[in-house]
Nucleic acid binder design. Structure first.
Lengths: 343, 343
DNA sequence: TTGTAGGCGTTATCAG
DNA sequence: CTGATAACGCCTACAA
């Protein structure tokens, strides 16, 4: 027991070579003879040596780790994005630290604090729904840590941003409902301070306008993230004397809330159009199955991380003009957005 | 730009006090006057000082961080467990590093390697379905890192273990099906090398035996994790001349696979009993809604982490006898395990 | 109550 | 090709 950690000095002693030479051999630095290198590698493995990342980082000042902060680890969009980020990291030999903000500014701040202390080289973040101020993110930059925002971003912060074509895809989704002859389409949105929700709303509004459909002001309800809130809102709207015949939502969880409302009010689900967003795995399990938007989140995570590796790691960032990268999303049309042929 | 990191020396210079004194003040060590402490705290905040965790760790040899390795971040069971672990960590001022093994031994090994390099004080792990050998886990112990296994454990490794009452709850679940007059109950299991799957099978078998029900050997199919594999298996079983009238599975994803099989074969879902495990959120969305087992995973994560904080942090571990902690799970009985009254 | 000295393990630099 | 040395930022002894 009380196994002291093996250091390069232990290897040095074992082999009768100097520690600094061991270090070079281990790190593949030039100027080390082939034989010695192999001998060192073997001995290190045999002695179960693990490089102490704290000492190494302290010495050379960067950690070869990147941090990611997301609202919820267990939403498909984010866990898929993480899969993409993980891939990019492993391709580039970097470590990854994952933090959840649970959509709370306070936890987000704590995560940032922690990642700064961990001296990460780069932070990838999708900000919490609560976050409006750029201060937190600017703190990252002021600590000389690279910042890449994806999906939910603070626009005023000068950083790379990776986004879906939210406006366009929302427009297309709304058109999809309209073509099925739904005309009284309500919108259940997220906090308007957040870019993605604002963009989705704009796409929806543009479609309504282009097709000359009337949008009563009370058909637009924002800041209703989560299935419970969406359910409440849907119940209110459906209880109007002239209720919507379809709902456009900005997340599948909200769409689920709408479905719950329909059930509670005993309204035939096949009569009401419904579009979700994010293509959560439960969408296809619902009946009618849920039409949604595939955000290509794994690709998004991968691309976001690769921005660091290909553009920033070497120090020469692009100029502001080209700092936003768009990941094209795709409609996933299932049953809920269609007029059902009498079953 | 090129913002050098603020160190305690910067604060020291600013205040005309020595760096070591600053350190003491910042860390709440005794023997620092109240005024100085407050002054230091204020100045540190003003100067945006963040303690360099690498330097600190290198110095005092422990990182105040714990690592967790799980198969999949996006399965309810695990993400809920992480929520519990996060809570325990934040209550005890520790950092948390999350790694996914994606149920692959190789990635698991890499995660362990990485956590060792991060010099974590403790690793909480739920091993991948592939892992059978204790070698990997013993490596953790040999590096003098505390090890706590939860849910999926390697029994031969001497460590704290936190588990559900898998045998008992599976017994109860099977009985539940039996009481609804299902008698030809098939079992779709996981890799028998993994404790939880073995225990669940035993519970099922005991129930069948206690109620004198016949279990044809081909009604027991193991190593079929994931919905696709379970679906295949269910199709095979349902195509027998004397098919099962119910399925007991060891995960909700498998149960989903069974539901898919029923759909494909055009069999009335209400006629076939079905029990899942883990109470994934999609369970209640299925129709018929899925009966399952609530593993109390948040509590499990919390308890597992607290084992470290309360039992191990101070160095005096309990003796082997009491090293396994059981978290009682609970049946969640929905429609799929009931004989449906003609709808 | 305050300050000084040394070292944690690694790596970059320079010298041989 | 190989080795000695210093430094990264912090904290623990110990000294004042």
């Amino acid at each position: 027991m009380s196994n002291q950690r093996i250091t390069i000095y232990d290897i040095a002693k074992e082999l009768g070579i100097s520690a600094s030479y061991i270090s070079k051999a281990l790190n593949g630095k030039p100027g080390v003879s082939k034989q010695v290198r192999e001998l060192v590698l073997q001995t290190a493995a045999k002695m179960n040596y693990k490089n102490n990342i704290y000492a190494a980082n302290l010495r050379h000042g960067h950690s070869r780790t990147i941090g990611v902060i997301i609202p919820h680890i267990n939403q498909s969009f984010f866990s898929d994005a993480i899969a993409g980020i993980e891939l990019a990291c492993s391709e580039n030999n970097h470590n990854l630290i994952i933090c959840q903000s649970h959509d709370l500014s306070e936890l987000e701040a704590r995560a940032i604090e922690s990642l700064i202390r961990y001296n990460v080289d780069c932070i990838l973040i999708s900000v919490s729904a609560e976050t409006e101020s750029p201060a937190l993110l600017e703190q990252i930059i002021s600590h000389n840590i690279r910042l890449i925002q994806f999906d939910r971003v603070i626009e005023s912060v000068d950083s790379y941003k990776v986004l879906n074509d939210n406006r366009e895809i929302s427009y297309n989704a709304a058109v999809c409902l309209i073509k099925e002859k739904f005309s009284k389409i309500a919108f259940i949105g997220g906090p308007p301070a957040v870019n993605v929700f604002r963009d989705r709303k704009e796409g929806y509004l543009k479609a309504m306008k282009d097709f000359s459909l009337n949008v009563p002001p009370n058909f637009i309800v924002e800041g209703r993230l989560g299935k419970e809130k969406a359910c409440e809102t849907a119940i209110q709207l459906l209880s109007l004397s002239d209720p919507p015949d379809a709902f456009f939502t900005v997340s599948d969880h909200q769409a689920l809330g709408v479905a719950m409302a329909l059930k509670k009010l005993n309204i035939d689900k096949n009569k009401v159009g419904l579009f979700g967003f994010a293509n959560e795995s439960f969408g296809e399990l619902l009946s009618p199955s849920l039409s949604s938007v595939d955000q290509k989140s794994t690709a998004m995570g991968y691309e976001a991380a690769m921005l660091y590796f290909s553009e920033m790691l070497n120090g020469k960032e692009l100029v502001k003009a080209s700092k936003t990268k768009i990941i094209e999303s795709e409609l996933v049309i299932r049953e809920s957005s269609k007029r059902m042929h009498q079953a």
